[in-house]
Structure formats: structure tokens, C-alpha cells
Amino acid sequence: MFIRFLISRVLTALAVVFGVVCLVFFLLHLVPGDPVEVMLGESARPADRAALQQALGLDLPLHVQFGHYLANLSQFDLGTSFYSKRPIRDLLLERLPATVELGMAALLVALLLAIPLGILAAVKKETAWDIGATGVALFGVSIPNFWMGPMLILVGALWLGWFPVSGREGIASLVLPALTLGTALAAILSRMIRSALLEVLNEDFMRTARGKGLAERTVILRHGLRNALLPVITLVGLQLGALLSGAVITETVFSWPGIGSLVVEAIHRRDYPVVQATVLCISVSYVALNVLTDLAYARIDPRVRLGSRP
């Protein structure tokens, strides 16, 4: 049963990935804006323009270009950067560790903030604590990364001088970007933890745990949270995709040398193959994360694969 679910889920994901490949290619090729003109300027000689067009393969009909693109993709060849003239695959692999590191750190920050906040809100339900935690969560999702980041730089780096302003050198440089990226996720997770915990708080095993005289703290942490976290942990997977897109702006704010800042640099340099490849790469990882989350969930909770899910 699980194998069948796995196969059908992976096949659907592959179809979506193919759709993503098509969409990225055609959207970026059909929107107005001629890369050759942008690269050479309006006053370029027609001969130069034609030469560059030919060198980039942009003189071929669109469907032929798409065919070449697909053929290259099937060999994991993402093309060559206009700007650095290097294979894009190498550029991406170079930048990947920084993004993974930032993502992991942001996830850690999110969990460290969300778990206490969620517990507090659930245990003290409908008191000032709960309302306060709700307020903090609302602030968390309403502060954009590109403002949160500069504010943290202002306080943590410029005024207090505890952390570097930007760049990636040592653990200290990771703190502010991770806080910036993790806050919104923390806000969402704290709400999830609250509702998941509220659901288990009145279960029989909780009453039993209290009945046998365990301390309230042990009851909540060992019996309540453990059961509540199961669905939450799998939902974290779905939110990791949001982290990926948040990373684009956060990495730019902190000049963090990851994949997110690569997209923005490539856009400003009009390096279209890099933009295309990076968007594709992030979207495919997003699809993969979603599939993994689904599978993990189905593995843990059999109702998912036996139920009416497509």
C-alpha cells in the first residue's frame, strides 16, 4: 500500500516538475524584454547584435530552443552563465551550502521560539498570555524580511556591535540572518503547536498522567507535547518551501552568498540563464520537499494513504 502511494506521489511530482520546466522556460522567454539589447545597449551595431544572438542560440525558433534546453536538462546541464561564462551547475553547487546552512539555522530559531510560545498559548488558553502570544505571532508574520533584517543590523550590528553587518564568516554572522528568516516561520509554527496541543490536552492519557500524580510540567512536556508535535513536525516540511523564497530577500539583505542572492545578482546582471536555472532549482527542491513531507506523513499516519487523498 505504501509503495503504491509512493509511486503515484512521485509520478505526480514528476509531472509537476515538467510543468515547472515548461512554465519557467516560456514565461521567461515570452515576456517583453530582449536580453541581447539589454546586454549590448540600444546603440549596438546590428552585426554585433546578430552575432551575440547566434552565440546565445536566441536566433533559433522558440520550440527548437526549448528542445535543446530539455535535452541539456536531461543531462543535468543547466547552461552557461552569460556573465561569468562558467557552467551554472557549478555556480549553484558553490552557493548551495550557504543556503542550506541558513535554512537549517532559521528552522532551529523558529522551533526555539515557536515551541515555548505555542505551549504558553495553549496551556494558558484565553488568558492574557494567549492573547499576547497571538499578538507576537501576528507581528511575526507581518514584519517583512527586508525590514526585519535592516532593523536587526541596526541594533545587533551597528549599535551593540555583537554581530557582523553582513557576509558569511563564522557562527556570529549566521545569527542575524537566521533570526530574520526564522521569525515568520516561528509565528506560523507557534499557532500550529498551540492548536495541536489544545487537541491533546483533554485526551484520556493526559488525565491519567495527572491522575498518577505527575508534575504538570512533566504532563505537558512528556505526554502532551510529544503527541502534539507529531503532526507539527511533518507540517514543518511544507513550510520549508516558504523558507526558500524568504531566503531570496534575506540573503540579499545580509549579502549572504547563497542561492537566493544568486538569483537577485543574476537579475541585476541580466544573466537570464542563471535566473532561469536558479528559479528552476528552487522550485524543484520545493516540489521535492512537499513530496518528502507527504511520504513522511503517510509513513507515520496510515490514515493519509488509506484515506480519500488523490
Partner: peptide, 24 residues
């Protein structure tokens, strides 16, 4: 449904950033 699935495969604002970047 297929088209919706494909669009939902793009995380958040990423597609908008790429599009705005290419269109100028």
C-alpha cells in the same frame, strides 16, 4: 488543476521576482 499545481510549485514570491527582473 494541473496548471494550478504547477503554479503552486513555485515558492511564494520567487516567480514574481524572476518575472519582474526579466520584464524590467
Amino acid at each position: 488543476v494541473r496548471v494550478i499545481d504547477v503554479f503552486l510549485a513555485f515558492p511564494g514570491i520567487l516567480l514574481a521576482i524572476a518575472l519582474a527582473g526579466v520584464m524590467g
